[in-house]
Simulated scan of single mutants.
Amino acid sequence: MENHRFGFCAISATLLLALVPALALAAPPSGRLEGLAQHANTDVATRVDITGKSANIHFDAPFSCDITATYLKDDNGASLFRFNLSTNGGSFCDGLKKEIAFKPAKAKDGSAIWHISFSSKNNDWTGQLAPAGKP
């Protein structure tokens, strides 16, 4: 009986250690992230400042608007933030639907990046953000 208990503990510990990297990647993003959001032939510079469960999102020209979002939940390895009302108006930010998803990934150089996805009135947008100061 003692050998079975040891074997079970060893297997459990091995499984837990295997999950640790995945659990670390599933944490919501934090700090400043920068990059591009894209749809078809349209690219827009995007900056996101995340503190705790709050995100301040800025879309550069041609949209030039700001919106906040609040952490909602983790879903399929992505952190979902629910859009609030835009803070400075603008039809683009006013037309954003539901939430923005941040999914952790690794760049070719091994650094952490975040794939984003969200929808506006007429389009689905995707993009890639990296911590500020990283290419």
Rank of each mutant, 00 (worst) to 15 (best):
5 R>M: 07
5 R>Q: 11
6 F>I: 15
6 F>E: 14
6 F>T: 11
6 F>C: 09
6 F>P: 01
8 F>H: 04
8 F>L: 15
10 A>G: 02
12 S>C: 10
13 A>M: 13
13 A>Y: 04
14 T>D: 00
14 T>C: 14
14 T>N: 01
16 L>N: 01
17 L>G: 07
19 L>V: 02
19 L>T: 07
20 V>Q: 11
21 P>F: 07
21 P>L: 06
22 A>M: 10
23 L>T: 06
23 L>S: 08
23 L>R: 10
24 A>C: 09
24 A>V: 10
25 L>E: 12
25 L>K: 09
25 L>H: 06
26 A>H: 04
26 A>Y: 09
28 P>Q: 09
28 P>A: 13
31 G>A: 01
31 G>P: 03
32 R>M: 00
33 L>S: 02
34 E>Y: 01
36 L>M: 13
39 H>G: 02
39 H>D: 09
40 A>F: 11
43 D>G: 09
46 T>S: 01
48 V>D: 02
48 V>C: 00
49 D>Y: 00
49 D>K: 00
51 T>D: 14
51 T>S: 15
52 G>Y: 05
52 G>Q: 06
53 K>W: 03
55 A>F: 03
55 A>P: 04
57 I>F: 00
57 I>K: 00
58 H>M: 05
58 H>C: 01
59 F>R: 05
59 F>M: 04
62 P>E: 07
63 F>S: 15
65 C>N: 08
66 D>I: 01
66 D>Q: 07
68 T>M: 08
69 A>G: 08
70 T>C: 06
70 T>R: 13
70 T>H: 06
71 Y>K: 08
71 Y>E: 08
71 Y>I: 04
72 L>G: 03
73 K>N: 14
77 G>H: 04
78 A>G: 12
79 S>V: 07
81 F>L: 07
82 R>K: 15
82 R>V: 08
83 F>S: 08
83 F>Q: 07
84 N>W: 04
84 N>C: 02
86 S>A: 15
87 T>V: 11
87 T>M: 10
88 N>I: 11
88 N>Y: 07
89 G>L: 09
89 G>D: 06
90 G>K: 06
92 F>Q: 07
94 D>V: 09
94 D>R: 14
94 D>G: 13
95 G>P: 03
95 G>H: 03
95 G>K: 02
96 L>N: 09
98 K>Y: 14
98 K>H: 15
98 K>W: 11
99 E>S: 15
99 E>K: 09
99 E>P: 00
100 I>M: 13
100 I>K: 06
101 A>H: 04
101 A>E: 09
103 K>N: 05
104 P>D: 05
105 A>H: 08
106 K>V: 07
107 A>N: 15
109 D>M: 04
109 D>T: 06
109 D>W: 05
111 S>P: 05
111 S>R: 15
111 S>I: 04
112 A>F: 10
112 A>Q: 13
114 W>S: 11
115 H>R: 15
117 S>G: 15
